[in-house]
Design a protein around this nucleic acid. Sequence first.
DNA 1: GCATATGTTCAGAAAATTAGAATATAATTT
DNA 2: AAATTATATTCTAATTTTCTGAACATATGC
Lengths: 266, 266
Amino acid sequence: MTLSAVSTQIKTLEEELGVLLFDRAHRPPRLTPQGRAVCARAEDVLERETALVAECQTGGALAGRFRIGFVATASILLLPDFLAHAQAEAPKAQFDIETGTSIALEDRVTAGQLDAAVVTASQFPPPGLRYDPLLRERLVLACPEGHDRDLDGLFRTLPFFHFQPQSGIGKLIADHVVPYQMADTRMIYLDSVEAIMECVNRGLGFTLLPEPDARRRLGATACLRFDTPDTLTRDLVLVTSDRSGFSGLSGLVALFHAERRDQPTG
Amino acid sequence: MTLSAVSTQIKTLEEELGVLLFDRAHRPPRLTPQGRAVCARAEDVLERETALVAECQTGGALAGRFRIGFVATASILLLPDFLAHAQAEAPKAQFDIETGTSIALEDRVTAGQLDAAVVTASQFPPPGLRYDPLLRERLVLACPEGHDRDLDGLFRTLPFFHFQPQSGIGKLIADHVVPYQMADTRMIYLDSVEAIMECVNRGLGFTLLPEPDARRRLGATACLRFDTPDTLTRDLVLVTSDRSGFSGLSGLVALFHAERRDQPTG
DNA sequence: GCATATGTTCAGAAAATTAGAATATAATTT
DNA sequence: AAATTATATTCTAATTTTCTGAACATATGC
């Protein structure tokens, strides 16, 4: 860069700022006190800019500001470990977390308001979305001790606590429970796993829930029963946009798989 | 600005950063997580830049980073108040302070290493420099009690404590003291006003010093004498470059005069 | 006080940014 | 599902900006 170019640039800057940066009564020109102050702050701005550019080029791995949704049931089991792993393995990435039902979260991914969401998979991903499997949880019965009849008998004897049917798990539960519904079947719909398990623990009824959720709140007076088909599972998946697919998706999925090692599934 | 211009600019930026900022599989394009992170940091950089420009245009009064020197004797009397006033009245200005002898400081102003300095004025400002008067201090005698003879008598009786002769005040003192020097005159040269006054207070000799400095350390066993010509003064001045003269000099001088109101001259 | 080195100003040249037209494509509508 | 519409991108030309090189001005050193 030529001296003349520098000279005109400085002059233009001085006019732009309305401040004399150099004292040209001397050779070489000296910075004025104002120029010194401007220079210091300008250096700060430039440093931040070059740092930003540098981070873009080095942080190729997993960097960015990700907006991720979690269904309530996943937020308890998966989210804490996910955040811990993210902080450790992807310190440059930021995460904005939301919760909601599987359908609401999928809608927000479709609308581009979320980059990804952990939801209960439906049979097929909705159009425009893709599923990346994270965790398969078996649905098991939880009922008070001493009710060792078959399922039909249970439904005739005790009320069934049904997790909110409009949710992802709720639909799975509903599908499986339909054949047992009779005129006298008592169904109680709740939107809290914790409330349901509290009722089961007190002998007020039985329920069908993902094994980890049921086991977590299982009291001494209740037990799990596995006399359901072992194909009756709910799949937690990471749902993302089908086409777009932001760079770093595989890294994101990896963050979830990392925690499966630490945290045994059953 | 046309859409096409924006489009090409974004594309160029993406290539420059090596990062996909937008997901163009949708209309309108969506920011990728990476793009979102870059955008947030870029906004920060731009804010700082516009803030810098804005401050330049508003802070016309006294803003900048000023490097100012103080002679030791002025640093005690003037500097604390100066800094206090500066902080209150020119909060946007920064001040880097140095101390040194009048001559050394004037050299540094000449060399452009200081913007200004508070020094003891010599008869004429050195070439290339200008003086702005700040404060006139009378030189007075300080001697132990009970020595009420004339000056000649004093010089014959007691040692004279002479402030460092290479300094600004030192030269004034030397000029005035020359006529009294005899073969048996005892002169003690010290570079500390405090040490000199301690000796005077202990009856070990007498001295000639600026009134404020002498009065400040005057003990009970010593007194000030004003039997010197009242034209025998030292002028504290703000010395700056003659030609250049940075903008804000008058404001700087005003900061010194502001403190004279609070602090009576003596 | 003159010579030299260095900074500024002024022209034209080079580079960049930008607007407008043509093309491609995501979203919408029928 | 196909056609339509709206919107983004690509391409080229024009504009603006920036840069270089020569002439001129000026501070410093001898």
